[in-house]
């Protein structure tokens, strides 16, 4: 009986190790995002969190999503963030101690603690889920993970997939409209306000 117990514990050690490593990456990265004064450091901490989430995805047999997580989030979104941070030159230190609203930060901490405890209590109350907790082996259909996700997206959720295409087009057009300078008059009026941040004065030439 004891030997069986030890064997079952020994079998869980690799899984537990992977889970704990991913959880530590997630939590350390998340705390880094909100604690770092420099936005560049926050963005790099976010990469750590995203890798941790990808580890947890792989641990749960969602290999396709883990790959997409790395490619889309760590590869594209974080680079976009870093690009905007560098482009705007806002990577100087943020004044964290300036507090316009009275006691906003203590109240925020209190509310978040209450919210997290409520979520966890809700999960305990609901027994976490209605399904089995220990699923082993293949959980989905006859195909590999990529095939299963693809089949689901292109059959059951085909309409949502088509709507996604429209959404991406709208987002691209919106970004172009927002980022474009609307005429020479606007850019002339805006240039003085950029001067204190050390923007190059010869911007009229490039625009």
């Amino acid at each position: 009986m004891t030997g069986l117990f030890i064997a079952s514990v020994a079998r869980t050690i690799p899984d537990t190790t992977v889970f704990v490593a991913g959880a530590l990456m997630i939590l350390a990265g998340g705390i880094g995002v909100i604690a770092c004064k420099n936005p560049v450091h926050s963005a790099l901490s976010m990469v750590l969190t995203l890798f941790g989430v990808a580890v947890e995805f792989i641990e749960q047999q969602a290999e396709f999503l883990a790959a997409v997580q790395i490619i889309v989030y760590a590869g594209a979104i974080v680079v976009l963030f870093l690009f905007v941070i560098m482009f705007l030159g806002v990577d100087q230190n943020d004044d964290v101690h300036d507090e316009p609203l009275v006691a906003q930060r203590p109240l925020a901490v209190l509310l978040v603690i209450i919210a997290v405890i409520s979520i966890i209590a809700l999960g305990i109350e609901a027994g976490w889920a209605v399904g089995p907790h220990h699923v082993t082996g293949k959980t989905f259909g006859p195909y590999q993970n990529v095939g299963e996700v693809g089949r689901s997206v292109f059959t059951t959720y085909l309409f949502a997939f088509e709507a996604t295409a429209a959404l991406l087009i709208i987002a691209v057009v919106g970004a172009v409209v927002l980022a474009r300078r609307s005429g020479a008059a606007t850019s002339d009026a805006v240039l003085p306000s950029l001067a204190p941040t050390g923007a190059p004065q010869d911007e009229e030439v490039t625009s």
Binding site: A62, L65, V130, P132, H133, F140, S152
Partner: peptide
């Protein structure tokens, strides 16, 4: 994973 339903992964996509 817990419910054995691929729909959750599609939602993440």
């Amino acid at each position: 994973r817990m419910l054995g339903d691929i729909a959750g992964q599609s939602a993440v996509f």
